[in-house]
């Protein structure tokens, strides 16, 4: 983990108030693992104090002058404008500087996750809205490991379903859902997920899910019903992402830190059965 001031190389608008912010930082790009995140600090804005947590969407090779460099040089962040901080992010231009604390947290494949994926029949990615940003790097790593994959992706409307093309090389099939019915299934993404799980008796599946609390909760209860294991990438407000403010704690099973664990340090990826669902909802953005 490194705390650096880095340079914006691109800030590309997509549909529905989404952007991809690209920054150059070879050390951080090379250290990043699938499922990890970064804290972005907007410099010179004393009224937007705290850094903003963002999943590491992608890491890419870059160029140094005319020289193409094969090692990752650039980090991409896929984000949606939802408030003051992200609105300021949207005004960043190539050459601007931002503070970048990265990479942070336990990613998807820090421990036994990859073994679990390899040992099963298929990995199902379940993304709600901007949650898709946490899943691209794991999808690429799993594809490289020869794992069969499928994407279930839901949003409020068609403009929320960004980044599907980037995913398509790694998944055999994609099911889309929108709450307004403007694209794919009309309703929640958990409906196509439920039908799929229903049609796969005897298969061993691993679900990787990232999205709003309600979607995660519904996904986890489906996983439980069909006896499949599920990894969730959680979001919570973050003060420091260094493990010291304890602002990001969520309730978990057992004794860990007095039954709370920090999303920034013990997470953001948890086995779904470790998280206590139900009574304590996390805030919506």
């Amino acid at each position: 983990m490194l705390d650096a001031i880095v340079t914006v190389v691109e800030n590309r608008p997509l549909s529905g108030g989404h952007f991809v912010l690209s920054v150059r930082s070879p050390c951080q790009a090379q250290a990043a693992r699938p499922g990890q995140f970064a804290m972005i600090r907007l410099l010179g804005h004393a009224d937007v104090l705290l850094r903003r947590p963002m999943s590491i969407y992608d890491v890419r090779p870059g160029r140094n002058g005319n020289q193409a460099q094969p090692e990752p040089q650039v980090l991409d962040f896929l984000y949606k404008v939802v408030g003051r901080g992200t609105a300021l992010m949207a005004t960043l231009k190539p050459g601007d500087r931002v503070g970048l604390l990265a990479p942070l947290g336990h990613g998807f494949f820090a421990e036994d996750y990859l073994a679990e994926a390899r040992g099963g029949d298929e990995v199902l990615h379940v993304a709600g809205g901007i949650g898709i940003a946490a899943l691209l790097l794991p999808a690429r790593e799993l594809a490289a490991a020869g794992v069969k994959q499928r994407l279930f992706f839901g949003g409020r409307t068609h403009a929320d379903l960004v980044g599907v093309d980037e995913f398509s090389p790694y998944v055999s099939e994609t099911a889309l859902a929108t709450e307004d019915g403007s694209l794919g299934h009309h309703g929640y993404v958990t409906a196509p997920l439920s039908s799929y799980l229903e049609a796969q008796p005897g298969k061993r599946l691993l679900i990787l899910a990232c999205g709003p609390w309600a979607m995660l909760e519904a996904t986890v209860s489906l996983a439980r019903r069909y006896g499949q294991r599920c990894l969730v990438s959680m979001e919570n407000r973050m003060g420091c992402a260094l493990g010291v403010c304890l602002g990001c704690s969520i309730r978990v099973q057992g004794e860990g830190h007095g039954s709370y664990e920090r999303v920034c340090t013990e997470g953001p990826v948890f086995w779904s059965e470790h998280v206590v669902w139900g009574e304590e909802r996390l805030p919506k953005t």
């Binding site: 104090l49 919570n236 304890l246």
Partner: peptide, 27 residues
Amino acid sequence: DPMPGNPPPRIYETESGMLNAIGLQNV
């Protein structure tokens, strides 16, 4: 004795400041 702390949400950013109610979670 160790303390578990308060349920989330525990923090919220305000103009040039932040609110916290961690509940003194400690080891």
